[in-house]
Design a protein around this nucleic acid. Structure first.
Lengths: 201, 201
DNA sequence: ATAATTTTAGATCGCGCGATCTAAAATCCC
DNA sequence: GGGATTTTAGATCGCGCGATCTAAAATTAT
């Protein structure tokens, strides 16, 4: 038929993710993207529509490769309480292993583009996927006794989601290991089953 | 001496806060600021240096009027556990009473400008002020028995800070009252003193 | 080979940006 | 009241933006 594309869709999308992740949507220019992706401006527009379309496709690829991959992997291989703790451990590791201080791409997008008419509802849904993962684990853990039933599964899931997000905010600004680990450990303590009764001192 | 200013510093700073809060630093133009503040571009530069200087002064005024005011007011008038709960209640109220979805100005700044060489360290300090408030209250509450001692004061303070930040992130994207209140309530439950021992079922 | 079709890169469009120059208007000291 | 001084507003600077036009390069069906 005609001349084939000279680039792989996935590879150039990864380059676009790098740009948007490091600088945000507004501060990333078409010229930045063109250079990092290794394709010219018109090719970019031909393949992805416009800057905003490229942005949305970058977000979807990022989510598939990070958040959704992690949820599927942990949920398929671990007991409920262990899956939640492993999720936290991986996020803590990412938050503390971020010398360029780029933070969480999804969180950056959530704050920069929460009023974007094409993204607002989607972003709520993406965060809802994390909350739903926590809720499934907590529900299962409460059923088998490995997770406390002092609070409802939905409320525990909501609290865990809040701490995950807050953790990534503070790690962006102050990536201190004791701070981040203390925050995570204390939140996870809410999952501990009721301890053996102990007397007050 | 000479011609006096035609505007009040505080009043035009409030207008600048409105702009930066709604649009962020990068997406707010000098012309936006000039119009909202009611002064011309050159007057703005004469009074505040440049756009970035105006931004920093706007942040400081915002913090004095909101976060620091709240901390001083609650800490000066309430018992420790009540002060923490009142802090949460006020933040929840603000997070849910935000029809324009502007979120928390400090949090927006923290994510958009965390790599700003003139702001990075300051932002960590601002969040540290909140953490320090929580830590003072928890320490005092643990001393008088009104707050649980299962976890250390510093870890509880860190967890509370995380939830406050996460709460404002999620409220920006999905301002659902059950979601936000469940998150806050479950975090605050970590402060409850040890309940009377109860048997496992 | 050649015709048809798609992708490619360079040049360029109008626009809005942060910042500044110029000079007129306004005020206080004397 | 007049001179010195500061603030004011309109006009404008060069620059980088998102997006697109043009035409050359590359590939396949015939």
């Amino acid at each position: 038929m005609a001349r084939p594309r000279e680039f792989e869709n996935a590879a150039v999308l990864d380059a676009a993710i790098d740009c948007f992740w490091a600088e945000g949507f507004g501060a990333t220019s078409i010229r930045d993207l063109s250079e990092r992706m290794g394709i010219s401006g018109p090719s970019l527009y031909n393949a992805f529509g416009d800057k905003h379309g490229l942005f949305i496709q970058s977000i979807e690829r990022y989510l598939d490769q990070t958040m959704r991959e992690r949820i599927a992997r942990l949920e398929g291989s671990m007991a409920p309480a262990a899956a939640v703790r492993a999720f936290f451990a991986e996020v803590v590791k990412r938050a503390l292993g971020d010398p360029e201080r780029r933070g969480c791409f999804l969180l950056n997008v959530a704050l920069e583009r929460s009023n974007d008419p094409e993204l607002g509802d989607s972003i709520a849904g993406y965060l809802g996927e994390i909350e739903a993962f926590f809720r499934r684990q907590v529900t299962a853990g409460q059923a088998d006794g490995s997770i406390a039933s002092r609070q409802s599964a939905i409320d525990l899931a909501r609290m865990l989601l809040g701490v995950i997000l807050g953790l990534r905010v503070i790690a962006r600004v102050n990536p201190s290991r004791p701070l981040i680990e203390g925050m995570a450990r204390t939140a996870l303590a809410a999952l501990d089953p009721d301890p053996a009764p102990r007397r007050r001192t």
